[in-house]
């Protein structure tokens, strides 16, 4: 149970970072933290107490394995996260070239 709570704490930490930080790079780090919290949660849903790795072989019985599907899915989610982060960092670099700052209170020409 405690792992799930820690996972939630990590997610909230990421969201706090996105909402409260003023530096663009810190916001990107916040996105990554929140993303990893979700990935971790997804992995945990497939975990079993003292489960063994999900490799099928004829001589071992297949009781008490961890669920392999979330691991495959999280692998995909990590790759997507990587692409998003790369794009975000690229945009942040361009913003720094144009505005000369990473502070979002100074990059506020659009009103929303």
């Amino acid at each position: 149970m405690i792992v799930y709570l820690l996972c939630l704490v990590l997610f909230c930490l990421g969201l706090y970072c996105i909402l409260r930080k003023r530096n663009i790079i810190k916001i990107i780090v916040g996105v990554m933290i929140a993303e990893y919290a979700v990935n971790l949660f997804f992995i945990l849903t497939g975990y079993r107490m003292r489960g063994r790795s999900p490799i099928f072989s004829p001589d071992v019985d297949i009781t008490n394995m961890v669920d392999p599907l979330p691991q495959a899915l999280v692998l995909t989610a990590i790759v997507i996260g990587l692409a998003t982060t790369a794009l975000l960092v690229a945009i942040a670099m361009r913003i720094y070239e144009k505005y000369g700052t990473f502070d979002i209170t100074k990059i506020r020409e659009l009103r929303g």
Partner: peptide, 9 residues
């Protein structure tokens, strides 16, 4: 760039 960053986040 500013709009794209906001949208992306």
């Amino acid at each position: 760039l500013e709009a794209a960053f906001k949208y992306a986040i």
